[in-house]
Each structure stands twice: as C-alpha cells, then as structure tokens.
Design a protein around this nucleic acid. Sequence first.
DNA 1: CCCTTACATTATAAAATATGAATATGTAAA
DNA 2: TTTACATATTCATATTTTATAATGTAAGGG
Lengths: 111, 111
Amino acid sequence: MNSASTTAIKFDFEVDEMVDSAREATDFLKSIAHEGRLMILCRLAEGECAVTDLEELLSARQAAVSQQLARLRLEGIVDARREGKSVYYSLSDDRIQTIIPVLYDMFCKPD
Amino acid sequence: MNSASTTAIKFDFEVDEMVDSAREATDFLKSIAHEGRLMILCRLAEGECAVTDLEELLSARQAAVSQQLARLRLEGIVDARREGKSVYYSLSDDRIQTIIPVLYDMFCKPD
DNA sequence: CCCTTACATTATAAAATATGAATATGTAAA
DNA sequence: TTTACATATTCATATTTTATAATGTAAGGG
C-alpha cells in the first residue's frame, strides 16, 4: 500500500482513465444492448428508413418504437429527418457502423 | 398484409431468425455492459488473474467483485481455477477476445 | 483445533430500465 | 377547419439490475 508512491500515483491515474473509458464504453454498450434498439440499428445500417417500417420490423407499437428512437437520438446515435408526414432515421455514429458487422459475424453467420 | 404470401412467409422466417440473433447478441452485450464487468474482462484479456487483484483494480468490495464474476461464470464467459487459497480467473469465450480490441479502439485510443 | 486469508452465497434494499396507456403534436388532404 | 395519418411525449407501473450487509466455506499456517 505504501511502496513506490510515484508508481502508485501513475497507476491511479491510469486507473482513473480506465474507469472513464469504461464508463463511456458501457454507456454505449447499454444503448445497444436491447433487442428492439439493436434491431433498429441493424436495419438502419442498411440505410435510412421511416418509423412505420421499424414498427413493422419489430412488430412493436408505435409508442414503443418512438421511445427507443428518442433514446438513440438523445445519445447521438441516430439522426432524424422529416419529410412530409414521415420521419426518416439514419445512423449518425461511426461506432455503430463499426460494431454492427462485428456482432453480425458473431451471432448471425450461417453455420 | 395479404400480398405475395410466399414472400411474406420467407420474410417472417427471416425476422424470427433476426429476433433470435438479436436476443443472443443483446444477452452478450448486457453481460459486458457494466463498468465493473468490462474492466474485469479488459484485465483478463491481458491474462489470468486472482480475485484479489480485481478487487484492487476496481476498488470494489470483495462481495461485489465475486458477484460479477459469478455472473460471468454462469454466462460461460470466464473460467475459474483454484490454486491454494486463490482462485484464478481467465477468459473462456473467444467473442470477448474479439470485441475487447474493438472497444479499445473506440474508447481507449490516445487522442 | 483455532485463526487468518481468500473467495462465494444469500437476502434484501435501492436504483435503473422497460412497458403500456393515454395524450399531444405536426402535416397534409378533403 | 375538420379529419386522418405519422410520430412524439408523458407518466404510472412492472421488471430487472445493482449494491450492501451478513454469513458461509475452503485452504493453509501456527
């Protein structure tokens, strides 16, 4: 506990950094660790689409889908664009574009 | 709703598959979407270590660490091996080895 | 055998998330 | 301007997770 205090300080600093990174990473992971949201993101990875399409895809109620989209919007993960009566959503975070293929390889490969 | 029923059946089948994959993926993501568990996994990615080391790393109580380890064990993500008084943990799931570097690139790169 | 160290488990309280119903807003068309 | 359609928000409640505290077990040393 009291040996090599210089190293201890450096170590604590690194741990703090690690805690910060871990918090960022887990915030990100939590926002995609939800069946509905993940499916929305997978769908958006193929291109922009409207809320109605997502409702069909998830067989979920409008309010529920809208709620998940609101969360993704607040986290800066998706963008919304209104065109007439519809609102079109798209991915706005490169990290999603990065991680979706990784998850696809792990869980969606035919085998 | 009633057009092209053959296509509709195929589509439904694909959606079911997608729901299953999404569940698997989100189960996995949920198990790593926790500050403590993620830090544990990052540490284990560097090699096996004992519970005491993890307690220090997380500055968490023994019981809390043990609980997270229990969860990771149940999910088949880590292995435990007893040697004398200590229990050594290590990663037992390749998907963790795959995803840790991806997360590292996203959240821990110096910049 | 008793004591200490290292770890696990259990019960429970507290906190975070999800779900569902009701309602509101914004747009366009009749 | 009434109506219908598309989407958003709000709020109460249910469910799931996480943290805390207390206790239990396994191993080794004296």
